[in-house]
Write a protein that binds this DNA or RNA. Sequence first.
DNA 1: TATTGTTATACTCTATAACTATA
DNA 2: TATAGTTATAGAGTATAACAATA
Lengths: 153, 153
Amino acid sequence: MSTASPTQTATIDEVDTRYVETLLGYNARRASLAVIEVFLKRMAVYKLRPVDFSVASLIVHNPGITSRQLCSTLGLRPPNLVGLVNTLEKRGLICRRPHPIDGRANGLHATAAGMSLLKKAETAAAVLEDDVAVRLTATERKTLIRLLKKVYL
Amino acid sequence: MSTASPTQTATIDEVDTRYVETLLGYNARRASLAVIEVFLKRMAVYKLRPVDFSVASLIVHNPGITSRQLCSTLGLRPPNLVGLVNTLEKRGLICRRPHPIDGRANGLHATAAGMSLLKKAETAAAVLEDDVAVRLTATERKTLIRLLKKVYL
DNA sequence: TATTGTTATACTCTATAACTATA
DNA sequence: TATAGTTATAGAGTATAACAATA
């Protein structure tokens, strides 16, 4: 009981976040945004947002991948991918080629410039992820990624 | 070298996602979106999006908290919080009261209806998080949350 | 002078409907 | 009839600038 004040007009000196911090969704979102924030700053020099980087990287590692396959893999809507691919193409990083089997589709391929940029970008990504995960040991980081996959895969 | 095809026109049967899946940022974002997707569906009955839930819950657990404190805690911009608080107030879930010390600020308080709704919503959140984390053991879930905090705190 | 809360507003991100060309 | 890619467009989310009231 003690000397309880009349609840009415309390002031909060330090916000009690204990409840929300028990939630997986809350923590996953906060961590995700923390990484993205650093990503945006560090990768600005390459003019690559997280989604651009994912798209370009998947094209590099999957020569001939189609837009449809990119959408399925990354959970994007086709109309929202068009602009991304157009921009990457205009920058000379990728090119559309006729699909060898399906006349409706285009195979997406990285250009030499695209492969060169992505190589640098992937190195930068590794560095920034090391920085973001500085409070985690190598083992903890592997564990974290393994457990995250169990949530969304 | 085997029978390598002229790289030019390959088709991708299965997308190779091994590289992006090594990235903490990629996995954190995918997991976050997976939880949010379920959250939106299950909490629609309470008309609470993740951000509404976080705001309302923090008000319940911190009677008299100010908008400014909510913004700092959740990483929101003040102009974007105004509408959220207005909506919660119009729904009769919270109320603004004059701040006991600072005449510029309002103390935010949950109404009886607000506390009642949040009690139900927090129960529903616990259930949906159990479902989302069904592939994780209780220990793994605790570990996951602990490691996520190491990323953003 | 600095801060809280607010309005107005712009920008980005995401979603839906509908069209074309091909399967 | 179904699917890949695209266009147009609407909606949601997030950002900055500027103002009144108070510290």
